[in-house]
Design a protein around this nucleic acid. Sequence first.
DNA 1: TACGTTAACGTAAGCGCTTACTCATAGACG
DNA 2: CGTCTATGAGTAAGCGCTTACGTTAACGTA
Lengths: 353, 353
Amino acid sequence: MTIIDTRLCDRLGEMGVEEDRITINDIAAAAGVSVASVSRSLRDLPGVGLETRRRIVEIADEFGYELHPQASRLASGRTSTVGLAAPLFGTWFPSRALGGIRSVLAEAGYDLLIAMMSTPAERGRFLREARSFCRRVDGVILIDTFASAEGDSADAFFNRPVVAVGERLAGAGSIAIDNRLAARRAVEHLIDLGHERIGIITAPERADLAMSTSGLRRLGYEDALRDAGLSVDPSLAAAGDGSIASGVEALSRLLAIPGPPTGVFCMSDEMAFGALRAAQTAGVPVPDELSIIGFDDHDFAQAMGLTTMRQSVGEMGMTAARVVLALIEGSEPISEITWDVPLVARQTTAARV
Amino acid sequence: MTIIDTRLCDRLGEMGVEEDRITINDIAAAAGVSVASVSRSLRDLPGVGLETRRRIVEIADEFGYELHPQASRLASGRTSTVGLAAPLFGTWFPSRALGGIRSVLAEAGYDLLIAMMSTPAERGRFLREARSFCRRVDGVILIDTFASAEGDSADAFFNRPVVAVGERLAGAGSIAIDNRLAARRAVEHLIDLGHERIGIITAPERADLAMSTSGLRRLGYEDALRDAGLSVDPSLAAAGDGSIASGVEALSRLLAIPGPPTGVFCMSDEMAFGALRAAQTAGVPVPDELSIIGFDDHDFAQAMGLTTMRQSVGEMGMTAARVVLALIEGSEPISEITWDVPLVARQTTAARV
DNA sequence: TACGTTAACGTAAGCGCTTACTCATAGACG
DNA sequence: CGTCTATGAGTAAGCGCTTACGTTAACGTA
């Protein structure tokens, strides 16, 4: 048959070896052992003597041989792949997390399969195709999917272990921060600086305050005020949508009210960037007349001199990856890992004059 | 064994059907045809009669059956996966491109495998493991890998079709912009506004100007000046590294020279953001006394009111994905697709007073 | 010495598809 | 009408691994 001839030809042609065509059988033959031993040796499984194993590994190296991933996957039923579902990859949070996740998985020899859900349409599609997604994957990491908010649970993932970062999901592990506490610390920072009229620029909240990131941050803001004996003045709250533009607008509104705030807590750095810009436009010097504190420690925060609360997203991603891997290997489910959110004081906050 | 019992339990529990266990054989049996016909029907291959095909598809739908990807991959030798190699995913350009790529691939039923090369160490690792990467993939997309700069060629990818976005690589297709022309247009915009002392904030260049993005942009800057009869004054060039911080610093230097520029072209928006900040700090009003134009149309550019040259990275990614897919299906190699880079005039440039 | 253990290996049956090849059947054509 | 060609469909041999199970030999232990 032609095919066989071609193969033969290739083999002979390229120094006698067409690497792509080497199989576990060839290695077994070369080492004078069975394919089972090769398979076990190459995967560090027990059941092979020390000397035999050494020889097998050596020969495989020599041939530049690696197990064929597709074949392994079919035969073992494992995919050696972790799925990542997140809304928007042009966006800071998931992109950063992706970096951390990717590096841990690479280390462990796992592939990463990405599902994006930027638009509602894509989100619907994802849910529809969840089964197909899960089939390709041994475990799932969720970022900002709001899955919980819609009453989904980890059951939707067809028995694959699930870990959510930045959100909670019934039946899934979660890597999160204490949003309420972190927000409270941010506001306390302003209070410590002597501010008494402290505004807040909010991100969209869900009905159930205690379940959403922004809801919790708002509660933390109120906690801090109340503890300091300050009143919670609704006119000091301006709603944004998370974007820079909305931050511009929100701060403009706050500056326009009678008795404007001297300090503002923004639920995200991006909105804080907008606020900074609005302050500049309005001729209000920061931090001299207005202190602004953000939340995230976005890549740009340092360059912008923004005081903020640092979310170590990359590390959270790494942890999430380690946790799914552990779950895949069969370790006990974790419920929640809470990450610390330190204050990073820079140049946008100062003592009230 | 417990495991089996559990499974059995599941089966019985969930309406008698554990979907995961359905194979092509079951569908074939249910439809009263051979597995070959099912396989062909489900993949829209010829060789099945209209009526038969309809029935098969209907039954598969009913069972919620889909071909087992791992098995298909092993049997066909195709991976239905495209590889993406890029340096940094926390970063604007690749993240944006990723979005476009991902959406096109999803549409085509392809998976995406990501390789990151943020650090030199990771880059080395990638090259070392290139063979392993390529085995998992039918085609490769390269972003900002500088592969070409190091004398690599598409040969390094083991016969998989390769397309590079934003760079050129021997033997690979490429989706790019005309950096020289775009830079020239940016500077012409400043010239049209009456500026004569026009500075430039550069990104790191390679030895061979004509081969690197920044080199080409610098040439475009010089083209524009010369064409307008303006001299190229080296003291008006400040080197940055692409970061906001370096933009701050670079503009500060330019403002400090005798006869500072009234217009500045920044090779990237991020550096332009830094420049904006530096101008503000220095008390130089933009655009009244200083015009700044960037390059990229970064997500933040609009909110910051930055005039810039728009790179449609998402669309370039989509195109790259379409091109690899076409190459995978066997279409003729393309050499290069050049993307338009329109000027987006916003509020950081104005006529010289 | 006989028997039970344990560890090292080998055997071979899959895993769930794809596809080359074979076989009917049915027009088309002279 | 017989022959040729096209088309629909089926058969079965893989694809390159994994792993349950079987075998063998070595080593106690009673």
